[in-house]
Amino acid sequence: MSEIPAELRYRQSHEWVRVDGDVAVVGITDHAQDAMGDLVYVELPDVGQVFAAGDEAGVVESVKAASDIYAPVSGEITEINEALDDEPELVNNDPYAGGWLFKIKMADDGELKEMLTADQYQEQIDSE
């Protein structure tokens, strides 16, 4: 069973969001990192880039797969997790804390309401 913290919001494509004021911290879920296997590379956006919700904002790569990361909400990138350059395994080992990917200054926090709750996300992965 993978961990799904109750306080976070989720996207169907397996990103999570933690809200911190008007900033959304984004990562991929425990379930997603487990399905990918050992990550070998994480491609992150540039600070200052602006995305609409659903835009491709990065890529996570394992040996056998590559998966796009979508911006869960619209806004501007304020910070990226540079530690992942050398240690992509942080995403595997600590997906909800040390393995965060990037932070977005939200343009419209109303978009959060359209995201899944922990229960809804659990339901989704149960049905996969």
Binding site: Y41, S62, V63, K64, A66
Partner: peptide, 12 residues
């Protein structure tokens, strides 16, 4: 670095 290649990454 096979994740760049067509057999994994397909249209991308």
């Amino acid at each position: 670095l096979q994740a760049r290649e067509q057999h994994i990454r397909r249209s991308k």
